[in-house]
Amino acid sequence: MTVSMKRFLSINTYHPESETISISDTSVLENILSKRDILAQTAKIFDPLSLCASVTVKAKILLRKLWLLKLSWDQKVPTDIMAIWSNLAEDLSGLRNLSFSRQAIDSDGLLKLHIFCDASPQAYGFVIYRVQNGKSHIICSKVKVAPMKAKTLPMMELIAVYIAFKALIMLLRTCSNIKVENIIVSVVAQFVLSWLLSDNGKIKSLYTRNRIRDIHEENFTKEFGVDIQYKYVPSAENLADLLSRGVSLEKFKEKLGYWTYRPTWLVQEPENWPISTLSCLSPENVKNVFDSTIGGTICKLLILFDRFSSFDKLCHATAFVFKFVNKCK
């Protein structure tokens, strides 16, 4: 080990000259035979901040697939799994060549936190960014594979919001000496946004109601003096999309700057943020979202009044629309 490199807990390498950290030099073996071997090699990559989770999640998804195949620990894995692992092992070994800025948060200046949540049939997770002094930077992320018992995508994204809140509490308590100006939680599923902004008593699923209750019980205003704002973000602008689906090392390198430092709109005024039609939200919830995130921009109407020849026909169509929206909640 050279003087210019220091190890932290034998997992990260610190480069004082460039003020960067990287995953320690770890070689992941490509030649494996069993599920036990894949787990042992995957465990070599320990990334506590999940800075490289967009790549490592592919190993977790592969292990989940092996569990679904009901293979024993020492049973030989199929040939197609071996081929997938061979490419994945090369990607995992290549993570040691990536580096990230060590200082994610400045001690001076108001701090804004932006959380992106997303889910796919294979995994769900979140990523937290700080916006401070006109700049933004990734703080940490977290990704988990989908449970063996299938759940709907909106429910999984709700769980992603739930685990994001748990991590957020730890982050705010750790950075208690820094003033947090506001916190924005962005989700892709409009159903989830509707759940978070509505009375959970109207939701039929007991599990969903309990998760929403757990989220609402976290009183950030009382403990930290900051409110939570919710925002819908298109999938193309959601950085957590990389987490939930997983990418190759080559693709991750291409998006490394985007992943580390933000989409360009994140440091701009809310009026310049992406705008989308929120067709699954009630007018009151649409107003809440727009007032807090995109400067009160008017949403496109669901029902075009000038297409109806009489007031009775308009009322009849409107009733069907509200009936459909209520069933979707």
Rank of each mutant, 00 (worst) to 15 (best):
V3S: 13
E19D: 14
D25Y: 12
S27F: 08
E30L: 04
K60H: 12
L63R: 07
D74V: 03
Q75M: 08
N87C: 12
N87F: 06
L88G: 03
A89S: 15
G94K: 15
L95M: 11
R96C: 08
F100S: 06
S101P: 06
G109N: 06
L111G: 02
L111H: 03
H114P: 02
C117Q: 06
D118Q: 09
S120H: 14
V127I: 15
S136N: 11
K144H: 14
K144M: 13
V145D: 05
P147Y: 14
M148E: 07
T152E: 10
T152A: 13
T152I: 05
L153D: 09
E157A: 04
A160R: 08
V161T: 07
A164S: 13
T174Q: 08
N182V: 04
S186N: 04
A189P: 00
V192K: 10
S198N: 14
D199V: 02
K202L: 09
T208I: 13
I212G: 05
I215D: 03
E217K: 15
F220M: 01
T221H: 12
I228M: 05
Y230F: 15
E237I: 01
E237G: 03
V247Q: 09
K253C: 07
E271F: 15
W273H: 14
T277F: 04
S279I: 04
E284S: 14
I298W: 09
L301M: 13
L302Q: 10
F308H: 06
S310G: 02
F311A: 12
L314I: 04
C315Y: 00
A319W: 13
V321N: 08
V325R: 12
N326D: 11
K329S: 05
